[in-house]
Design a protein around this nucleic acid. Structure first.
Lengths: 364, 364
DNA sequence: TACTGGCACTCTCGCCTTCTGAGTGCTAAT
DNA sequence: ATTAGCACTCAGAAGGCGAGAGTGCCAGTA
């Protein structure tokens, strides 16, 4: 059956009322809240039809109506207005983001916190690096039994490790090793590094003490780490303020689900960059989330990595507001991480300018 | 008034029963649970006196008794048996710890998770580095506008940063800069680096493009980061399973308190290494924790840093079990982090051996 | 004197009943 | 097509009741 314009208006009104109050909404409430000039009886009839069509549920005979997941879906697809952030909100975001350019997981955690405090829902932030290879090796000779191994990766990050050796090495060996690793161990992925490669490298530079395998272990470790994504949950406790999670068992179920980063890394990875994806109730694959909704924004950090930042809440969620905030944060992240990292003597200032620019662009 | 031996026994029985059941315990229950051969009436009289002395509380006239914080304090000080971990438990811990030697905050997070899953309470792990200075600079020339800055710190960690320069540099300059920084910027703390130092370094090596200040910014940043502690909360959701936190408002209060790392870093920093500290209810300074208890173990990672790992729960907490587990983890951490880091081709094996050693030592 | 059995008393908790009111569906009137 | 009106339903609050757990105290016993 077709859904008339008027029905849509009523449905939107019901959804918005329910989002605001978390209580079943009755026909009288809608009639009186203005917007539509109809009597409660008319609205009642329409609501009865909407119920028949599966857009509204009735907790019991004499209660008001509650939107079904199907209704929310229609709402986010068609009905909901794309909300603009107010200047104040934008500036609040800018203010909290402007001093952050740092290690990846610290950044993730800060971004998660920001998203959570803005939306008042638990937020997850994750970053999944795209496969990287080592593009350059350096070995810094510190003293006879200390060297620093430095590996620069194809994604323009640099990893290092301090190696305290239980034996002495001479600078010549270290140099030979560095050049051997630079020729043989660059531009290959972790699983391509075989024991035989290592032992032939060992021969090539006359290493009798096993330093080669130490360096190789470092290389493998580095590549492995680079593949690992970072996942962070922030503001989990916000969930407890939502009426639908006042039941501690429900809350526990979700919170413990979220606290396992395995689960987070499995969050949907499709969709386009800088766009918002909403998963409503049963649309979630994880059964723990079947009663909740997830709003996800994807960002793209150049070729290095991609990530998502999302928010978890009840199906009765302020989709419009959350989407606007996440969209803004995600586009901000795309810029920050996507652009080649320029050296900064005065980091704060530079980033500040950038975000102001963006804000103005957005307006045009 | 003196507290007799028998009272202590009864008190311990009450506390243990309450820890196990979370319900007010009555005289009859104690009488029947064996251990003491006394009638319920006698126990009743003793309990009445314990109540008068402030060790027990009565929710209402006809309910059983509940231990007061004072009782718990006596319990942890005198009554509680120092629990040994079973072989199975030790091995479970070893198993989950043996594959971890990695970046600090990742390690913290893993340790927190471990503590939390062992104790079934939320756990906090924090590490506070002791002030460090840079002990060695290296600049790796990658190409005309890319260099990698590497700084080795006095605490034997190494930091690096990839610098993409908006101008071209020649290798000579880079070398000169490295040596200038090595002589002037090592072994000093962050606040000792002044703009005039930077400009004189700039002159010294004939830098006309501002590369010096970029490197200096890196140095400052590195020192600043090295000072920062890492704080992590894990398993927060476990709290919701405790009957005393089934009230979502209470749970929310504590969880949001814990999720702010500012608060965590303020956790008590006194006490001796490898020993356990217990803060019961009102002994906590933070008012959010006045109804909860915190068990803290301190570990010492050589000269580099010290940290604590703790567990938060209701005052009715399995102090003995938690203490035993934390003590074990802390001593493990002290060893892992305290010893100079040896290079490891076969990391897992080495660590595995170490923990087995410890376990055996502990037994003797 | 120290312990115990017994007993009356208190108070929470769970259960049942009743009552209220919000909200509905339907019908008849506009 | 819309609306006013009305009977109906049902969840949840309010009140009353009884059961049971636990206490305090007293008198009796070893």
């Amino acid at each position: 059956m077709e859904i008339s314009e008027r029905k849509k208006k009523i449905l939107a009104a019901v959804i918005e009322a329910y989002i605001a109050t978390a209580e079943p909404v009755g026909s009288k409430y809608i009639a009186e809240s203005g917007g539509l000039d109809l009597s409660s009886a008319t609205i009642r009839n329409e609501m009865a039809e909407l119920t028949a069509m599966g857009y509204l549920d009735q907790p019991h005979t004499s209660a008001g109506r509650v939107p079904s997941p199907k209704a929310y879906r229609l709402y986010v697809n068609e009905l909901m207005e794309r909300q603009r952030l107010s200047i104040e909100e934008t500036e609040a975001i800018n203010r909290s983001l402007c001093l952050k350019m740092q290690q990846l997981d610290k950044l993730m955690s800060d971004v998660g916190k920001l998203a959570s405090s803005l939306t008042q829902y638990p937020a997850v932030a994750l970053a999944a690096p795209i496969a990287a290879t080592i593009s350059r090796f350096d070995l810094i000779y510190v003293d006879v039994n200390t060297i620093i191994a430095v590996a620069m990766l194809s994604n323009n990050t640099v990893h290092n490790k301090l190696l305290n050796l239980p034996f002495s090495v001479d600078q010549g060996l270290v140099q030979r090793l560095a050049s051997v690793f630079n020729t043989n161990f660059t531009d290959i992925s972790e699983d391509k590094i075989t024991p035989s490669m290592i032992s032939s490298a060992e021969c090539a530079c006359g290493d009798t003490m096993g330093l080669t395998s130490v360096i190789a272990a470092f290389a493998i470790d580095t590549l492995r780490k680079a593949k690992e994504g970072a996942a962070v949950v922030a503001g989990a406790s916000h969930l407890l303020r939502q009426p639908e999670f006042r039941d501690p068992d429900k809350a526990h179920e979700i919170l413990s689900y979220l606290s396992d980063s395995e689960h987070l890394l499995g969050l949907p990875d499709v969709g386009e960059d800088d766009d918002i994806q909403v998963l409503i109730g049963p649309e979630n694959v994880a059964k723990e989330l079947k009663d909740s909704s997830v709003v996800i924004a994807r960002y793209n950090a150049g070729d290095n990595m991609r990530g998502i930042i999302g928010v978890v809440g009840p199906t009765r969620m302020d989709y419009s507001g959350v989407a606007a905030k996440l969209r803004y944060i995600a586009s901000w992240l795309s810029r920050l991480l996507g652009m080649p990292e320029a050296p900064r003597g005065f980091e704060k200032l530079q980033i500040k300018e950038m975000t102001i620019d963006e804000h103005q662009e957005d307006k045009n």
